[in-house]
Amino acid sequence: MKFFTPFRKKSPWILHYNAGSCNGCDIEILAALGPKFDLERFGVINTGNPKQSDIFLVTGPVTYRSRERLVELYTQIPEPKVVVAVGSCTTTGGVFRGMYNVEDGIDRYIPVDVYIPGCASSPQLIIDALVKAGEILESKSKAIEKPFKLFGAIETIGNKLSRLNMAKKVHDDED
């Protein structure tokens, strides 16, 4: 509904996932939640729970083992949702690009809406990105957004259960 859309940017709740980062960006996210930068001014809550989040903050270049968790968490966030790639290595792989266990950025797996540069991204940049993400959130619809690739559990359940609509639809599209 039109009435509700302006409120999306006023209460963007975030989910933070570290997909193999050096934890530089992670501590900067923590600092951004702290009193100096105070993300809660914008209504941001760090929920830690994909089901109640709007913005997916991902750090790190996506290692081989974290990619499945990344996609799993992404599918659990209800639409409308926005993905923010925090830091250089999340956007391109950064210094880790080409290392044998690294997947060179998250946009190989999930659609990204905001890229933040920087090693590590400073809190100011993160705030800026969240404001931008709020605007993008407003322009999104409730239509299903699918990851580019699915792994394991969701796929099997999608095959087994016709009622798990989301996984099924995504799966159908892949075929």
């Binding site: 509904m1 509700f4 006023k10 009193p35 809660e40 209504g43 409308p80 989301m166």
Partner: peptide
């Protein structure tokens, strides 16, 4: 609470913003 933690904190009507936003999410 935010003021007690020396922060600015969210606006007073924040719970209602949250409510309206939640109404507009896809339900899983």
């Amino acid at each position: 609470r935010a003021r007690m933690q020396r922060r600015q904190g969210p606006p007073l009507l924040q719970p209602f913003y949250d409510m309206f936003k939640l109404l507009d999410k896809r339900t899983l």
